[in-house]
Amino acid sequence: MTMQITDPAVRRTARARPDYRTQLQNWIPKLVLSPSLALILVFVYGFIFFTVYLSFTDSRLLPTFGWVGFENYEKLFRLRHWDIAVTNLVIFSGLYIVLCTAIGLMLAIFLDQKIRGESVLRPIFLYPMALSFIVTGTAWKWFLDPGIGLEHTMHLWGWESFSFDWIKNRDFAIYTVVLAAVWQSSGFVMAMFLAGLRGIDNEMLKAAQMDGASNWQLYRRIIIPQLRPAFLSAFVILSHLAIKSYDLVVALTGGGPGRATEVPATFMYSYTFTRNQMGIGASSAVIMLLTIVAIMVPYLYSELREKK
């Protein structure tokens, strides 16, 4: 029962007279924390355990408990549908993370050059983040629709050969998801980098400049390496958003055309709740979780350890 906060002297008296009040005071912090902890233990970790268990059972419409070992996983990995979903996630998350980081960094560096009207530009770059992916999907779905959106407008303006039908094209539809997602998140990454840039010591840069360093060298050698924490946070946040991405695909393409933009999140939902293959749905959710664990656990470990 050692509390860091308690002064050693106070603690000693408390020990000498372990009266009711002091004991209660010592327990209050733990009691206050316990509802949150209980909620998370049951609803997060208990439920994870349950889903992992289900992934080894023959559950279909409802959870059942006939043990089938790794059968669901074997089926899952043989499904072409899952293959498409995973490939799409790799394409999507790769491009999404790289483009958001590149655009975010570029905009942050540009905005950091004492730009006039920065206070107007910043909210413009950032506001898409406030929107729901359903709203974003609605806007882009229509904007990209060849029959009525951008392509149609270009034709009306006399550019008859203009063609932009990616959203209807099996091979390119996934890139429209990337486009809309980058539109939504890159401003947020910009804000993170901007905060990092504003925290860099100017004196060091001036000193480097005295020594004849060019702007390019300043950025490459001194500034960008110092943004390491911002890069790391951006990567973690973006990759976790990418793996969770469900709403945007539903709103923008509905997984189509055909199954061309199916991702693991939509796969899991349809197998579990509409195709009555709960065992396979659960095993796909477990694979998603393992991917997140591989990224998040090392990150959280290093963050929390340093903070001590």
Binding site: L41, V44, H240, I243, Y269, A285, M288, M296, L304
Partner: peptide
């Protein structure tokens, strides 16, 4: 800190893992 780590990780899980239960 360990307890906090468990709480924090809970925000990052893909929600598909808890949908069924």
């Amino acid at each position: 800190t360990l307890i906090f780590g468990f709480m924090l990780f809970a925000c990052f899980i893909p929600f598909q893992i808890v949908l069924i239960p």
